[in-house]
Structure formats: structure tokens, C-alpha cells
């Protein structure tokens, strides 16, 4: 296995007595899409800022692309493209002019910069809009311009903080497609989000964050299996007394929870037939049944169940 591109050891950031990030150990391999998940205020952005050398850790070390963000921030920032949560550009300048400023800060000559900018804008389909002032850009266009900036820089690592925040479903889909194409180019991507479904579809591995600590980390499928004990979720609506107890006796059922009128059953397989029989056998009336695969939302809900005021 090759050298990890991002590694942190016991990385800690305290604001006064409050620990924003608490002894974080994280390893990200090259070419991976890694998702940092968690509620707002869980320490995701603070972690990202420490990786970029924009915030000083209270203790612990980080290593990004072989450099220490604290002592060699310029080397780190040359290799890492960052898209902040709520990315902003200079409204009075055009898209191209904005990128040209960044290119000059990165030390490219103007000829080199123009070539890179043209290529990057074509990739995110902003070639025409690039000539217009950013003031008239939609949210989605700004996000794409931020990706163009990362491409233009030639970064090997992209750190995206809440990349789909405030995007409509159509733009979100396009944006995810863009992330997949970056992955195909071999870019390592670290993204933070609280939109779990989205992350499930693009991430190789995820880490669930809560109060500055990683609660769970691993591949999405593994988490589903390990945390939920099965990857099937069946929702039913039924009337009758003592149904929960009857359902729990059905082989394959790992857990039954009530959510209003709906009973949520976690199972190791698709055992809808057994469940229907069990309800009828217990004298209940089955009015609705719906089966689906477990999603990260379920893992998340289960994981944060035990933690007060996390979400």
C-alpha cells in the first residue's frame, strides 16, 4: 500500500475549555474519496482548517502530502485545492479574472495561467460565463468556478467543505458527477457534509464525527453491516396490540423501533413474507409495508441516538 496523503495523529484543537477537535486520528490514501460527516459544529471545518495550516492545532500533528501544515503551509497549499463552505469570489471581476488572480498568487506566468484557466473552465462548462462578472453567477456556477480553481492549480488533493450546501437537486447531481470525474483523474478528495445520501453515493470511506471525535470510520457498506447488523430496513404500518414483541421473535429481525404510526424493522434479509405472517398471526391488521436498503441516514440515526444534543 502506498504512502497515505493525509494523516493526522492525536490532532486536537481547543477553543478555551471547549474541544472542537479531540485527538483525531485520520488516514486518507491517495485516490480516495473520503467523507467527513457530522452535524454542524462537530469539528469538521476546524479539522479542514488545521489540515490547510489556516488554524493552529492545540496539540497533535498533521501531515498533508508529506508536509507539515504548521511549518510548511506554502508547500501544503500549493498541492491542496480548497473549496470553503460558502465560497466567495470578487463580484466586480469576471470568472477568468478571479482565477487569474489566484493563478498569480500560485506563481504561474500569465501565459501558463491563461492556458490552465481555459482548460479548467471548459471542464466545468463555464467557458462562456467566464467572461462575465461573478456578480451574476448562480450558487451552482460559483461552486463550479471553485472547482475550476482547484483544477487550474493542478492540486493533487481537493478539500471540499459542504460542497453541495444550498444547491438545487439538478446542480447537486451535476456536482457529484464532477466529483466522480475528479476521482477518475486520480485526485484525492476529502469532503465534509451533513447530507448523508449524497456522500453515500460518492465516498469510498466515511468518518462520522460527533463533538470533535470520530465515532465511526470505514467503508459505507461495512458501516451498514456493522452498525445495523443487516442492510434491510422494512417499514410497516399495522394495528393491533403487542406487535413489537411478536415481530422481534421473527428470525432475521435484529431490531424494531416505533416512529409514530410506523414500525421500523431492521433485518438481515428481505423477510417481508415472514413479517406479514407474524402480524397476521398476532391478530393485527397490516395496512402498509415498504422495504428498502439501509442508508447512511439509518447508521447516522443509530449512531447519534446515544449522544445527547448532537444533531
Amino acid at each position: 500500500m502506498s504512502q497515505p496523503v493525509i494523516r493526522t495523529q492525536a490532532l486536537t484543537k481547543a477553543y478555551g475549555s471547549r474541544l472542537a477537535v479531540d485527538k483525531l486520528d485520520l488516514t486518507i490514501e491517495p485516490g480516495e474519496v473520503f467523507g467527513l460527516l457530522g452535524p454542524n459544529g462537530a469539528g469538521k471545518t476546524t479539522t479542514i482548517l488545521m489540515l490547510l495550516g489556516l488554524t493552529e492545532p492545540t496539540s497533535g500533528v498533521a501531515d498533508v502530502a508529506g508536509f507539515d501544515p504548521l511549518r510548511q503551509p506554502l508547500e501544503v497549499k500549493r498541492r491542496v485545492g480548497y473549496m470553503p463552505d460558502q465560497v466567495g469570489f470578487y463580484d466586480n471581476l469576471t470568472g477568468v479574472e478571479n482565477l487569474r488572480y489566484t493563478a498569480r498568487l500560485c506563481g504561474f506566468t500569465s501565459k501558463e495561467a491563461d492556458e490552465r484557466i481555459a482548460k479548467a473552465l471548459a471542464r466545468v462548462r463555464l467557458t462562456e460565463a467566464g467572461q462575465r462578472a461573478v456578480a451574476g453567477y448562480s450558487r451552482g456556477m460559483r461552486q463550479r468556478l471553485a472547482i475550476a480553481e482547484i483544477l487550474m492549480k493542478g492540486a493533487s488533493i481537493a478539500i471540499l467543505d459542504e460542497p453541495t450546501g444550498g444547491l438545487d437537486p439538478q446542480s447537486t447531481r451535476e456536482f457529484l458527477e464532477l466529483i466522480r470525474s475528479l476521482k477518475k483523474d486520480g485526485m484525492t478528495i476529502l469532503l465534509s457534509s451533513h447530507m448523508l445520501e449524497l456522500v453515500q453515493s460518492v465516498c469510498d470511506r466515511v468518518a462520522l464525527f460527533s463533538q470533535g471525535k470520530i465515532g465511526l470510520m470505514g467503508r459505507v457498506e461495512d458501516l451498514l453491516r456493522n452498525v445495523l447488523g443487516g442492510s434491510h430496513i422494512i417499514r410497516i404500518e399495522a394495528s393491533g396490540a403487542g406487535l413489537e414483541a411478536a415481530l422481534e421473535r421473527v428470525p432475521g429481525v435484529t431490531r424494531v423501533t416505533r416512529d409514530g404510526p410506523v414500525l421500523r424493522i431492521e433485518a438481515t434479509g428481505d423477510i417481508r413474507g415472514d413479517i406479514a405472517r407474524a402480524i397476521v398471526g398476532a391478530g393485527g391488521d397490516l395496512t402498509m409495508m415498504d422495504a428498502g436498503h439501509a442508508s447512511l441516514d439509518d447508521v447516522y440515526a443509530r449512531f447519534f441516538e446515544g449522544i445527547p444534543n448532537a444533531a
Binding site: 489556516l54 485545492g81 480548497y82 465560497v87 489566484t102
Partner: peptide
């Protein structure tokens, strides 16, 4: 206010 600060500081400058 324009949200450009963190993006600019993420470039290789101090």
C-alpha cells in the same frame, strides 16, 4: 464579508 478570505488564504501565500 465577500467570503473570499478563506479561499485566498488557501493559496500558497501567508
Amino acid at each position: 464579508n465577500g467570503k473570499t478570505m478563506s479561499r485566498i488564504l488557501a493559496q500558497p501565500i501567508y
